[in-house]
C-alpha cells in the first residue's frame, strides 16, 4: 500500500516558455532540454526530423503547447548525458515555428525492449490540459492516430 497521496497535476499554463524552453523563445536563460536530440555535427547520416502539430477540438493548431520526447538511442540505451552526439530528452514549444509546428532533430531509436517496435515517447503539456498526456510515435504502419483523435496512454 502506498502511504502518501500523489501531488495533483496542474496545467502548465500559457507562460512556461521563459522557464522551460527559454532559448527557443529567445529569453536570456539557458535551456536544459532543446529540440536537438541528435547533434548533426556529430552524426548526420541517422538524422530524422520529427515534426507535427497539436490540434484542439475545433481543428485549430495550438500555439502554446509544450512537447517533450523521451527515447532511447540506436543501441537501445537511455542517454541522460550527451553520448556520441545524442541525448534522450527533447523539449519544444509550438509557439515559434510558422504553422505552430514542433520540430525535433533526432534518430529512429532501437526498440526499447525485445518484442517492441521502435517508438518515441511523447508528452503533451498545454494550457487547457490539467494533467499532461502521453502518446507514442511509431515509424511504420503501426501508428497511434485514432480515427477522431490521437490515442493517449495511461500506465
Amino acid at each position: 500500500m502506498n502511504k502518501l497521496g500523489q501531488t495533483p497535476s496542474q496545467t502548465i499554463g500559457p507562460y512556461f516558455a521563459y522557464g522551460l524552453t527559454p532559448e527557443q523563445y529567445k529569453f536570456d536563460h539557458k535551456s536544459l532540454a532543446t529540440p536537438f536530440l541528435l547533434d548533426v555535427k556529430h552524426n548526420s547520416k541517422d538524422l530524422i526530423l520529427l515534426k507535427g502539430r497539436v490540434f484542439d477540438l475545433h481543428g485549430a493548431p495550438v500555439d502554446d503547447a509544450m512537447i517533450e520526447i523521451w527515447q532511447v538511442d540506436q543501441e537501445g540505451v537511455f542517454r541522460t548525458e550527451p553520448h556520441e552526439g545524442f541525448i534522450s530528452i527533447g523539449r519544444m514549444g509550438t509557439g515559434t515555428v510558422e504553422g505552430n509546428l514542433y520540430e525535433f532533430t533526432t534518430c529512429i531509436p532501437a526498440p526499447e525492449k525485445p518484442g517492441l517496435a521502435p517508438a518515441i515517447n511523447m508528452i503533451v503539456f498545454m494550457r487547457g490540459l490539467l494533467s499532461h498526456v502521453y502518446t507514442r510515435v511509431y515509424f511504420d504502419n503501426l501508428h497511434m492516430q485514432g480515427a477522431q483523435e490521437t490515442v493517449f496512454f495511461d500506465f
Binding site: L57, M126, G146, Q148, E149, F152, F153, D154
Partner: peptide, 9 residues
C-alpha cells in the same frame, strides 16, 4: 476543447 475526449488506453 483541449482535453482529450476519448478515454486513455
Amino acid at each position: 476543447y483541449r482535453g482529450p475526449s476519448q478515454p486513455l488506453i
